[in-house]
C-alpha cells in the first residue's frame, strides 16, 4: 500500500504539490461516486480525501451537507463505505484519507474501526470534531492499526499548539485556510500564505491546505507558498450537485477542473 511518506517524498523530488480532491463517499450514489473518483484519479489526483456522510456535519458548509444527505439517501453506510474504498484501491493504489465525525467511529467501535479501515486500504482518518486535546481516544488505536494521523491547524492556532499538533502528526497537517466551515469562496484567504510559511518553518511534516480553495489560481498560490498538498472539496462537490441529471457532463466537468488545477500546480514548479 502506498504511504503518504512515499508519495510526499516522490513529489518533493519532482518539486510538486499533491493534488487532493475531496468527495463524499456515495454522493450521489455508489456507482456514480465510484466513477467520479476513478475520473479524478485519471485526471491527476495524487491523494483522495473521502468524507463519510453524517447527519450533523458541523464543520461543513451547505455544499457538503447536501452531499451528505444525497449519499445517505442512496443508502451509504459504513459497510458500503469500506467496500467503496476497496474498489478504489483495486483501481489504483492511491493514498486515501477519511474525513468524518467522531460519533460514527465511536459507534463502530474505535479499535475495530481503525483496523477495518486499514484492511480496506485507508491511510489516515481525520476526525473533524476531535481536536488534539481529546485525540488520545484515537491516536493509539489508529497507530496500532497501522494508520497515519492527520490533524487540523487553523488560522487561530497559536505557535505552541502548532508545535504540539505537528509532534502528533505522522501523515500530514490539514491546514484550514480560513476561519469558517467548508465551502467554495471567490477569493483565497489572505492569511493562508503566512500560515503555510509558519508551519513549514516549524515542522518537516507535510503541510496540506484546504477549505475555500476553489480555482486553479488559488491552488497555484497555495502551492507556491510551499504547501505540500492542495485539498479541494466543495468546488468539486458543487460540480456533482449542478449536474445531477447529466452524469456524462458531470464527469467531464470534474475531469476538466481537476486537470486545470493539476496544470496550475505543476506550472508553479514548487
Amino acid at each position: 500500500m502506498k504511504t503518504y511518506k512515499q508519495l510526499f517524498s516522490e513529489l518533493s523530488e519532482l518539486k510538486r504539490s499533491a493534488l487532493i480532491p475531496f468527495f463524499v463517499v456515495g454522493d450521489p450514489d455508489f456507482d456514480t461516486s465510484l466513477d467520479i473518483v476513478k475520473t479524478s484519479i485519471d485526471a491527476g489526483a495524487d491523494v483522495l480525501e473521502l468524507g463519510i456522510p453524517f447527519s450533523d456535519p458541523i464543520a461543513d458548509g451547505p455544499t457538503i451537507q447536501k452531499a451528505d444527505i444525497r449519499a445517505r439517501n442512496s443508502g451509504m453506510n459504513m459497510t458500503e463505505a469500506m467496500e467503496f474504498i476497496r474498489k478504489v484501491k483495486d483501481y489504483k493504489d492511491i493514498p486515501i484519507g477519511l474525513l468524518m465525525y467522531y460519533n460514527l467511529v465511536y459507534q463502530y467501535g474505535t479499535e475495530k474501526f481503525f483496523s477495518d479501515c486499514y484492511q480496506a486500504g485507508v491511510n489516515s482518518v481525520l476526525v473533524a470534531d476531535l481536536s488534539i486535546d481529546d485525540a488520545d481516544e484515537i491516536t493509539s488505536p489508529a497507530a496500532k492499526a497501522g494508520l497515519d494521523t492527520v490533524f487540523m491547524v487553523t488560522p487561530n492556532t497559536d505557535t505552541d499548539r502548532m508545535k504540539l499538533i505537528a509532534s502528533k502528526t505522522t501523515g500530514f497537517i490539514y491546514t484550514v485556510s480560513l476561519l469558517g466551515v467548508t465551502g467554495s469562496r471567490e477569493k483565497l484567504s489572505d492569511t493562508v500564505e503566512e500560515l503555510v510559511g509558519e508551519l513549514k518553518k516549524l515542522t518537516n511534516v507535510p503541510v496540506c491546505v484546504g477549505f475555500g480553495i476553489s480555482k486553479p489560481e488559488h491552488a497555484a498560490t497555495v502551492a507556491s507558498a510551499g504547501a505540500d498538498g492542495v485539498i479541494i472539496g466543495s468546488k468539486i462537490v458543487g460540480l456533482i450537485e449542478s449536474n445531477l441529471d447529466n452524469k456524462e457532463k458531470m464527469l467531464t466537468e470534474i475531469s476538466t477542473f481537476i486537470s486545470d488545477v493539476k496544470s496550475a500546480i505543476e506550472n508553479q514548479g514548487n
Binding site: 473533524a128 470534531d129 481536536s131 488534539i132 481529546d134 487540523m152 491547524v153 487553523t154 499548539r161 484550514v176
Partner: peptide, 12 residues
C-alpha cells in the same frame, strides 16, 4: 461531557 469540537473552536 468533554469538548468534541473542530480545532478552530478550541481557542475560543
Amino acid at each position: 461531557g468533554g469538548f468534541y469540537v473542530p480545532e478552530v473552536l478550541m481557542p475560543v
